[in-house]
Design a protein around this nucleic acid. Sequence first.
DNA 1: AATATAATAAACATCTGATGTTATAAACAT
DNA 2: ATGTTTATAACATCAGATGTTTATTATATT
Lengths: 237, 237
Amino acid sequence: MFKTARVNRISQNIVEQIRETIISGRLKPGDRLPSEKDLSAEFGVSKASLREALRALEALGMLEVKQGMGGGAFVTEVDLETARNNMFNYIFFQNPSIGEFTQLRTFIEPQVAEIAALKCTQADLDYLEDNLNRTREKMDAVPFYYELDTKFHHHIAQISGNRLICFVIDSLKNAIVQIKLQLELDRDFSIQVYKAHMRIFDALRKRDPEQARAEMQRHIVEVDERMKHYCDGDTLF
Amino acid sequence: MFKTARVNRISQNIVEQIRETIISGRLKPGDRLPSEKDLSAEFGVSKASLREALRALEALGMLEVKQGMGGGAFVTEVDLETARNNMFNYIFFQNPSIGEFTQLRTFIEPQVAEIAALKCTQADLDYLEDNLNRTREKMDAVPFYYELDTKFHHHIAQISGNRLICFVIDSLKNAIVQIKLQLELDRDFSIQVYKAHMRIFDALRKRDPEQARAEMQRHIVEVDERMKHYCDGDTLF
DNA sequence: AATATAATAAACATCTGATGTTATAAACAT
DNA sequence: ATGTTTATAACATCAGATGTTTATTATATT
């Protein structure tokens, strides 16, 4: 009926207070908190407890603590990498199937590609073209290749101008890459991906929304099929 | 050219080692780590540093530390609430517009409603009907009303059977609620939402995918327009 | 005068050891 | 048997000492 009453952990209390202050806007990125000595005095706790709280906030990506004179605890924006890792931590335990990734991607990415075809600038096309050139060169450099792959999708998402979409696509892609790294994918796979990216790029260059959508859809489904084949089923972790 | 060389923070190193062990599967949810005394000996660090690491892992939702005999640090699955809060921390700083929320939701939720219309069981319909009954009663109990609102959307997502979709919808909804709590919404708004939920429910009950999709789409757009009206523009935090 | 080097101080990083609190389990009394 | 007390393992918190990092200021060298 009731939740178990929360343990009154001093560091947790401090974390909540500081987080509240940030969310309420009274502390902004770049702001520096008082020194450990002053903070522990203000909260009326020992330095050790205070430091546990700072470490927790650091793990959440909301603080950055620097040593040395002029150092201290600074409020920071949670960055993409931290957010993506946090999301991965959750996804990891949910252990979704490849099909679940694919389904969500097909809901978002083809529509994003459609919008991108309408909104992309010459600079966007230049970026993507460079990405493709480098992908062709680095086809066999596995970690680097994945990085370019992720950036290709991320950039198309960026063209949409929707930061939430960027984040979701990026996090999904990141999780998929973590999976792929455990698989042993062959060169054929890389080539298939490269060709698909080329077709998407062509559609964007032609500013053809319908084709961009169709090619993105096809790409995602192709990757799905390949991965299921390598995975010998649909389970991941 | 190079990234700044990693600061060698002892607690950070421990966090990474333990996280690695969990991600690799050598430690599973429910497993208990050695006592603080033993762990600090094993890592060759002081108790204070070890505790900072445990606090960080606790903040990430991967550990739960219990006091008392038979206590200690237990590996836990990252739960929905933690993941949702972490995602909110990121979204907060991105400060997306209402339009960005709406766009992403329209990519996902109407399609999910369509699937739900095909897959929903009698138990699902019962759950949703109960949800609607309670919503009607608690129309004015603001926090409770939002909870029911969130659960309505979450349950429809659950019918799809896609855990990633569940998570994304839940996190978006949660972020929107955080926003709504800062707005002053009137009773009209609640009634409009209730009616929209009713229409969606009807479509599910009739197992009409096309109507379910259309009603969900309409609902999301309606909420968008209302919120923009109250927000006096499109900015949020 | 300009530059390199050294001293200073602010602030975090880590360690140690003592004391308090909690929860389980065993011992004990009724 | 049942309820209460006691012992104990393990975390929670604190206080203080010592080390490290970094920016600034002072000093010495060329």
